Amino acid sequence: MAKTKIVVIQLKEIIYTVIFVALGILLILLLISMFWPDKNESAPTSGNLYTPGKWTSSIELKDAAINLEVVLDKDHINSVQLINMDETVTTMYPLVQPALEEIALQLYNDVPIDQVKLSEDSRYTQTLLVEAIKTVLDKASATATPTP
């Protein structure tokens, strides 16, 4: 005849087991939600023209460099300015700042970069600036992958 074994389970052990199982399930759900790719954080949608942020480019002028900064929204150019411009560059190339201001006014009014009208007085300077802005916009295009 088989001997019957009696197993005694205390209520305290059942409660601890249920709590640990619930915490384990909660931990698994938390890890899944943290590492699951989110639709909003993936690549920019096709409706965006640019990746928002501050984008920079450098323009070489003989012995000097001019840094150009463009601040972008997803579909608009907010700001175009020269940053860290040395006083000698300002003295040697006095048309750079006014030429950039003329271009920036057109860009702020949503004129595409290819349709910016260049003035006859500073055509070379404005062409140089437009090319630098195009370089920045190419880097910031929504289809391009941002570099860290």
Rank of each mutant, 00 (worst) to 15 (best):
Y93C: 00
S79F: 06
P112S: 07
P98S: 06
A64L: 14
E69Y: 01
V89R: 08
E102Q: 08
N109G: 06
E101D: 11
L68P: 00
P112V: 07
V80N: 02
A99M: 01
L68H: 04
L72A: 05
V111P: 03
K74R: 12
N84K: 11
L61W: 08
L61I: 11
N78C: 14
E102C: 02
V70C: 02
D73N: 13
Q97C: 04
D63A: 07
L61P: 02
N78F: 11
I113M: 02
I66Q: 01
A64Q: 11
I77S: 03
V71D: 04
I59V: 14
I83G: 00
A99G: 13
K62F: 07
V80Q: 03
Q97R: 09
Q81E: 12
D63L: 15
L95Q: 06
Q81L: 04
D75Q: 09
I77D: 06
I77F: 09
V89M: 09
V96L: 13
Q106N: 04
Y93D: 01
T91F: 15
L72H: 07
Y93V: 04
A65V: 12
L100D: 03
L72M: 05
V70I: 11
N84S: 15
E101T: 13
V71N: 09
D86Y: 02
T90I: 15
L95G: 01
E60F: 12
E101S: 09
I59Y: 10
N84Q: 11
T90H: 06
E60H: 08
A65Y: 11
I113R: 07
M85I: 12
I103C: 05
L72K: 01
D73I: 06
P98K: 08
Q97V: 14
A65T: 14
N84I: 04
L105V: 10
D75A: 13
L61E: 10
M92G: 06
Y108S: 11
V96F: 06
V80Y: 00
A104W: 04
M85F: 10
H76G: 01
Q81R: 08
S58R: 10
H76F: 14
I59G: 04
V71E: 13
Y108C: 01
D75S: 15
Y108R: 14
